[in-house]
Nucleic acid binder design. Structure first.
Lengths: 257, 257
DNA sequence: GTCTATAATTGGATAGAC
DNA sequence: GTCTATCCAATTATAGAC
């Protein structure tokens, strides 16, 4: 299967290109077989850029639903409104296309987390983070789903980035959370688990949208449901981890207490 | 896995229609000649049952990682230690095998939720539920992943069951949660969102095990990490939704307010 | 029930004209 | 850069002997 880079029986030169794309460490410069990859040094004509991004976006839509193997390049080409061979002019092969999509994803996906810093009020920072992540789940559900797909499958094509970019970022932000806890602004919580919980709670609404739809009858596309979701998730998390002082007094509950 | 006798029996005609919503594939004509499915009425020799379940379990392992399209029947056969054609004697085609796996899954997946009833103490019920779901995430991560995969893809082969079994069960249990809220034993929370949150928080550790491993360096297989996870998730959820009476230290809040 | 072919088709990738 | 026409590998599924 095409799962492991050099573990199949493709022709030699084709495999060479695949291995390069998959391993990802090396500067993915491919010998002049195809002009698909010659970035950086020379500027690319605008038209090419546009077409590439059209293809990438079509690919995202399909890969995120059917996976790498469930999607044919024909389908991507059709959706991007280019011919199959033209697509293969821009991306040397299917796997390179897939990885290209994934790379863009990782950036978007991590962006909201970069904002965390110890100076912020944890309640505001976390509430804002939840909202931002839910906005992404609402506006870019495909991205979330593809990321999830890739994780489920063991991230064979993203493992390097995972170990580097992602885990170092999380390590830094966990330190921020730990600082919030130390300074008494947050209840004791294992930072990693809080991060996992935030991801899980917010991405779920994109990844399991079908299930949410089946049960709640609505998805994040519905404005009211979106706000309802933001509110519920925020309260679930915050009222669990914030020190009691930061919990706004609820008059009715004070009366009953 | 659970060999429920009446679990997954579809009549021969179901085999014939294998047109799926999956990426616009056209139906492959199937001549309904294989004896793969003749159940219920006649008892099946034990050996057949055993072999079927061996195949199903092999299929789960592969489908859950690589998806329906990412897995070949050859691979399943190899993993189950049977020949490909022998496998196709037991399951008329690849899709029937896949659906058979999914059906068993849904049952396991929903089981813990059935326990909820209004008479229980919500705190105990929910804490117990979290632990049970995390046990499943630990012991049957493949099942969780395959379920997730199917959801991401829009559950094309499970949609009926989703709309029936799952959503009616959730509707009933949501009523239980609502009752807990009404009786003041739980903070105000939208039942659906609580259910989604519980699922998301617990299944995340199975579905994103690779990410958890990359960041935390451990998975639920590690006993200490498992208990740490149970504890953190329980606290996150419970201290968020339980009535303030169960939350210690309200005194300072009154002072600042 | 199990096996050895093999039919039948999909789909990734290339060649070469323009 | 783009297209048409292929090539060829991978796989599903079937036929039919034992």
């Amino acid at each position: 299967m095409a799962r492991s880079p050099a573990a199949n029986k493709a022709p030699a030169d084709a495999r060479r290109r695949k291995a390069t794309a998959v391993a990802g460490r090396k500067p993915a410069s491919v010998a002049g077989t195809s002009p698909a990859r010659r970035s950086g040094a020379t500027r690319r004509p605008r038209q090419s850029e546009d077409k590439r991004s059209v293809i990438l976006s079509a690919a995202l839509g399909l890969f995120s639903r059917y996976g790498l193997h469930g999607t044919s390049v024909d389908q991507v080409a059709a959706r991007a409104d280019v011919s199959k061979s033209n697509l293969l002019y821009y991306f040397a092969n299917k796997e390179e296309l897939y990885v290209s999509v994934l790379r863009e994803l990782l950036h978007v996906w991590l962006e909201p987390l970069r904002g965390f810093s110890a100076e912020q009020d944890p309640r505001e920072a976390i509430a804002g983070y939840i909202r931002r992540k839910l906005v992404i789940s609402r506006d870019q559900p495909d991205a979330s789903r593809l990321f999830c797909l890739e994780m489920i499958q063991g991230a064979p094509l993203l493992r390097d980035e995972l170990d580097r970019e992602l885990s170092t970022l999380v390590a830094r932000k966990s330190e921020v959370i730990a600082e919030w806890v130390r300074s008494g602004r947050l209840r004791p919580v294992a930072p990693h688990h809080l991060v996992f919980g935030l991801w899980a709670l917010t991405q779920h609404y994109a990844d399991f949208a079908v299930q949410v739809q089946a049960i709640a009858g609505r998805t994040l596309q519905d404005a009211a449901f979106f706000e309802e979701t933001v509110d519920n998730v925020q309260r679930l998390v915050l009222d669990g981890i914030c020190v009691p002082a930061t919990v706004p007094a609820r008059a009715d509950q004070d009366r009953t207490a």
